[in-house]
């Protein structure tokens, strides 16, 4: 991907099986259009999303990361999404402190019925990140042992 005009960001999405992944399916069955820049990783619960995953995604080339799960009170696993809430609030600050613009990391609650919300969130996020351009972090040559 090039730095200049025509930059197309890659957004890594972690979606819970019961809500957001179903919304993505619904967007599919409803033939709703959205930018093809997202790569979805399905987990059973957004509570499975280890902050390490988000960091790995950014480290390896993600221009943005979206963690999405069921609305508060609607978690298939009682309160898994509450752990997601607490982790992502902290993570948000960590990523900003590490020099990553806040638009690049989002947490959204998207229920199985909210295909429209999925489309809106993804479209908006891709647009925002496209404007920001590629992640501006110092490049570092990592030689050994990693």
């Amino acid at each position: 991907m090039s730095d200049g005009d025509g930059f197309e960001p890659t957004i890594v999405v972690f979606a819970c099986h019961w809500c957001t992944y179903q919304a993505i399916n619904l967007a599919g069955t409803s033939r709703m259009k959205y930018p093809p820049n997202v790569r979805v990783i399905r987990v059973m619960c957004s509570g499975r999303v280890d902050p390490q995953f988000v960091i790995e995604a950014f480290k390896n080339g993600a221009d943005g990361v979206l963690v999405a799960g069921c609305h508060p009170g609607d978690c298939h696993y009682v309160n898994g999404n509450m752990k997601t809430m607490r982790r992502t609030v902290m993570l948000e600050k960590l990523l900003q402190d590490m020099g990553i613009e806040k638009e690049r990391f989002r947490r959204e609650w998207i229920s199985a019925a909210e295909a429209k919300k999925w489309v809106e969130v993804v479209t908006e996020m891709v647009e925002q990140v496209r404007k920001l351009g590629p992640l501006k972090l110092a490049e570092r040559e990592v030689v050994m042992n990693e």
């Binding site: 890659t10 890594v12 790569r39 990783i41 987990v43 059973m44 499975r48 280890d50 390490q52 995953f53 790995e56 995604a57 390896n60 080339g61 993600a62």
Partner: peptide, 18 residues
């Protein structure tokens, strides 16, 4: 670790994106 959703199953999936 959760069977079928272990770190060693999810992290390669993340890396593979790129």
């Amino acid at each position: 670790q959760q069977n079928s959703y272990k770190d060693k199953q999810i992290i390669p999936q993340i890396l593979a994106v790129f």
